[in-house]
Design a protein around this nucleic acid. Structure first.
Length: 548
RNA sequence: GCGGGUGUAGCUCAGUGGUAGAGCGUCACGUUGCCAACGUGAAUGUCGUCGGUUCAAAUCCGAUCACCCGCUCCA
């Protein structure tokens, strides 16, 4: 029985197979590659498209039944990668997406500048008050919301205070490292994990958005950004969709597309790359309905991943703690997969976020982004929604005009299931990779038939006695409906082995009995067992297996 | 961004200063009677890249790029 636990699989072996069989290549490899970018080969592209099409079908074309028993309403969109840069100011990405970082030159540790606090040891009980005390030229930094780090800094401060004959206040003043008072005073600051002052660098900006220039002139007025997520394109078109598509809240807008993040450290094959593909659904609903929909999409999305053939035991939910929520998010849960490089732990595959009314509000004129401080004086969109069903009910209930408005006018809340398509590819590759010493290829890719890049191999057992002609005829009939390959070269075993590594679920072999009795053998990839079926039944057989 | 490791054919790797190699894979021809069979033949390399030392560099030195591992980061 082959082992299905990702913990037992080698990432290097999976990467090697991906290269060898044409799933994934390093981008611009003949020039030495480029960090954080990958090209999808013929089989990888097919696998990616199969996952993408499955998502689109189950999200847009044939969406699930909602919690109230009614089919949910979702429309598709394909927005531009480059948008007006003000969109990214409003969304908070230009300000909030670039966290200033400080490095410790001694310990080589890196901290987010806004998460480092400094104990201002001027505030000692020697009566100096707020006046800087020249005798005390050492400030002790620690990590925000880390009690141990605070205790350590305090201990260091007390030791130093004792040396110079003062005591530290029981409740010392604490300022963030980003406080203007510390400009040019870094030589006095002792980092959270060191004893010597002056090892922290000035905060440095790490903007994760790729910049480009629109038009021929490369100045700041022409600066634009490659989108770091597809979601904003949906929010920018929310009004357009509402005005033209006869949709009403609750409804969803779905989009699949490339996104770009200038990651500090791309790592782990295609898990964290700088160019990747997202499948995002923005679900708009009334604020008081939002918990119901959050819960619905959370479980719906897990069901969807399971429908790809991913083992339940390799998937988990992980609810975000309050302090790790993004600036826009009220609640967030990740669906995580047990990747070989995270096992026995799990790594992110999809996030389902409750974004509240943050995004629609952010694109409304007059809104001030609470993270970046950017004031929106450019948008001309009003995002408030009039819920006429609620309005009608409120009227019938005989409520006052104010009460009717309160009940029926709102900025919709957003539930966002956002998954990485390219991470889905990685998950299926890891999930399918199965070592089996007993077979010639030593390894096979156990894709669920529906997602396999190649659905069937068609082989004449030997290249004579009319078998190639019969195989060719079978192939010509099948190729219009299924991606399949005919192969008459070399030994039959070698052909099976090749198909095992490509993850082709079924191989049909034309042999002597085909010529006399009209049957072919079907070789099953996973069990390696064979059965005979009538050559006329091959198409039906495949259709049934792939539909499962 | 920091530290460690690796880089030679499509893959796995050998080759420690003196003519660029093996196994597997790929391709062609022959053969074939169900799991990488066999025979014959062929293609595939600026030894990651750039520079230095040397009569001579895959090999020694420096830089750089990419990948892997550990930190860091991941709205």
């Amino acid at each position: 029985m082959p082992d299905t636990d990702p913990a037992s699989k080698s990432m290097e072996a999976i990467v090697a197979l991906c290269k060898r069989r044409g799933f994934v290549y390093p981008a611009s490899e003949i020039y030495g590659g480029i960090n954080g970018f990958w090209d999808y080969g013929p089989l990888g592209t097919a696998l990616k498209n199969n996952i993408r099409d499955h998502w689109w079908k189950h999200t847009v074309e044939c969406p699930p039944i909602g919690p109230d028993g009614e089919p949910v309403s979702i429309v598709g969109l394909d927005s531009s990668i480059i948008q007006n840069p003000r969109a990214w100011e409003a969304s908070g990405h230009v300000g909030g997406f670039s966290d200033p970082m400080v490095d410790c030159t001694e310990t080589k540790k890196r901290y987010r500048a806004d998460q480092v606090l400094v104990m201002v040891s001027w505030d000692v009980e020697d009566g100096s008050g707020d006046e800087p005390n020249g005798a005390i030229d050492r400030l002790f930094a620690f990590n925000d919301s880390d009690d141990k780090s605070y205790a350590l800094a305090r201990k260091k401060a007390e030791k130093f205070a004792k040396k110079i004959g003062v005591t530290v206040a029981s409740n010392p003043t604490i300022w963030p490292l980003t406080h203007a008072e510390f400009d040019g005073a870094y030589q006095y600051i002792v980092g959270p994990d060191t004893e010597t002052p002056g090892t922290l660098t000035e905060p440095r900006e790490f903007n994760l958005m790729f910049e480009t220039f629109v038009g021929a002139i490369r100045d700041d007025s022409a600066k634009a950004y490659l989108r770091p997520e597809t979601a904003q394109g949906i929010f920018l078109n929310y009004k357009n969709v509402l005005d033209t598509m006869r949709v009403k809240v609750p409804f969803g807008i779905a989009q699949i597309g490339k996104s770009f993040r200038n990651e500090v450290t791309p790592r782990n094959f295609i898990f964290r790359s700088r160019e990747f593909e997202l499948m995002e659904l923005e679900w708009f609903c009334a604020p008081d309905d939002s918990p119901k929909w959050y819960d619905f999409w959370k479980h719906e999305r897990m069901r969807w991943w399971e429908s790809l053939g991913v083992s339940k035991s390799n998937l988990v939910f992980r609810d975000h703690a309050e302090d790790e929520l993004a600036h826009y998010s009220k609640m967030c849960v990740d669906i995580e997969y047990k990747y070989p490089f995270t096992a026995p732990g799990y790594g992110e595959l999809e996030g389902v976020a409750h974004r509240g009314c943050y995004d629609l509000n952010a694109h409304t004129r007059g809104t001030v982004n609470d993270k970046s401080g950017w004031k929106n004086e450019f948008s001309n969109a009003k995002m408030e929604y009039l819920d006429q069903e609620r309005q009608q009910k409120a009227r019938e209930a005989g409520l006052s005009k104010e009460e009717i408005n309160a009940a029926s006018k709102y900025i919709p809340n957003v539930i966002e299931p956002a998954s990485g398509l390219t991470r889905g590819v990685l998950v299926l590759l890891c999930e399918a990779y199965t070592e089996d010493e007993s077979r010639p290829s030593k390894v096979f890719m156990k894709f669920k038939p529906r997602f396999a890049p190649i659905k069937a191999g068609i082989f004449p057992l030997v290249n004579k006695d009319g078998m190639p002609e019969v195989a060719q005829k079978l192939y010509m009939g099948l190729r219009e409906k299924f991606t399949c390959q005919i192969d008459a070269k070399q030994s039959i075993g070698k052909r099976y082995a090749r198909m095992d590594e490509a993850g082709t679920p079924y191989c049909f072999t034309v042999d002597g009995d085909t010529l006399s009795g009209g049957t072919v053998t079907v070789r099953d990839r996973d069990s390696q067992s064979q059965e005979r079926i009538n050559i006329d039944q091959v198409e039906k057989f495949l259709a049934e297996k792939i539909g499962e």
